[in-house]
């Protein structure tokens, strides 16, 4: 008899037309094409199976095989991945890519092993921008303003560094809070600001490129090690190809969504002069020092080196 195909449930929280959704579908297609009968991938978009907070636990229980939560979601599993939240560490996505594909970035993939997870690859969303109800040009513009953040100690420290008030609120409430100005601002990538309609309720967006919002495709060690070596290599290859495809869409979407926001005229897009930007960098740089022990000074140096 033929053995039943290996089942991979890929659970994510966004729509199918997003870069992550497209990447997951591409992965399924590639596996169908290359490993027909041996592996079967089913994709569950829109938090149909689990939300980002619970998907890693479900993975450890063996009910989900793959997911791609944002890197900030791993802070309780490993401290070193916090490096991606550090402000002004990477100057652009090329630097991010260079670091991720370099030896240190690849080593980080296995930093979750102790908790039973393995990183399979990084998936881009893009560089983060800041939006607010008032124009943000210099750090003092953010002083005393309330910013919504994802749960992350680094991001909290980042806003505290410019005397802003970081607030954790569930994503479901953010739009109303921004709309009514109960919260002054938030940080996100161009594509998220566009797809979540934040640009409709935030009159100013500053192109700060101050941080990166990327995802980590993960699986559980138990599942990954249960596969034959050949199969594992093939799956990894298919995933790598799908990630390249997804990253292409992410880059393209970042640019086009930015243009759509500018064209909508609902939000004014501000750019920073080199001088202004430097002020932000200086104001936020102490955050690096604060997390140096947890993340590792060498790792931060290696990441910085990717800028050159």
């Amino acid at each position: 008899a033929v053995a039943a195909p290996v089942e991979i449930k890929f659970s994510h929280v966004v729509a199918e037309n997003t870069p992550k959704g497209q990447m997951a579908i591409k992965f399924k297609e590639l596996v169908d094409e290359r490993l027909a009968g041996k592996v079967e991938v089913s994709v569950f978009p829109n938090s149909q199976l689990f939300g980002d907070n619970k998907v890693l636990e479900a993975m450890l229980l063996g009910d989900v095989q793959m997911a791609a939560p944002s890197l900030s979601k791993f802070q309780k599993y490993t401290k070193s991945l916090q490096i991606f939240d550090l402000p002004f560490l990477f100057k652009d996505m090329e630097a991010v890519e260079k670091f991720q594909q370099g030896p240190d970035g690849q080593k980080l993939l296995s930093s979750l092993k102790k908790k039973g997870l393995i990183g399979l690859g990084y998936l881009h969303n893009g560089m983060k921008q800041m939006s607010a109800s008032n124009p943000l040009k210099v750090p003092s513009d953010a002083s005393g303003k309330k910013f919504r953040i994802m749960t992350s100690d680094v991001l909290q420290a980042q806003f505290e560094a410019v005397d802003a008030v970081p607030l954790k609120k569930p994503f479901s409430e953010v739009f109303t809070l921004l709309q009514t100005q109960a919260i002054d601002g938030q940080e996100n990538t161009w594509s998220n600001i566009y797809s979540k309609k934040f640009f409709e309720v935030q009159p100013y967006i500053t192109e700060t490129n101050h941080g990166v919002l990327d995802y980590l495709v993960v699986t559980s060690t138990e599942f990954w090690m249960s596969l034959d070596d050949d199969l594992r290599t093939e799956i990894q290859k298919a995933l790598n190809d799908a990630i390249v495809y997804g990253n292409g869409i992410a880059a393209q979407k970042g640019d086009s969504d930015k243009q759509l926001i500018i064209d909508s005229k609902r939000s004014e897009v501000l750019t920073l002069t080199a001088e202004e930007r430097q002020q932000w960098v200086e104001a936020m740089k102490p955050v690096w020092k604060k997390f140096e022990d947890e993340i590792g000074a060498d790792l931060i140096k290696a990441a910085e080196a990717a800028n050159n």
Binding site: E7, G51, E57, L61, D63, S172, E173
Partner: peptide, 21 residues
């Protein structure tokens, strides 16, 4: 389906503890 009972318990806990609205 081949979901485990553990993940169903997880789903129930998610339903009681992850829906702020």
């Amino acid at each position: 389906s081949n979901d485990s009972l553990a993940s169903i318990a997880l789903k129930l806990f998610e339903a009681t503890s992850e829906h702020y609205t």
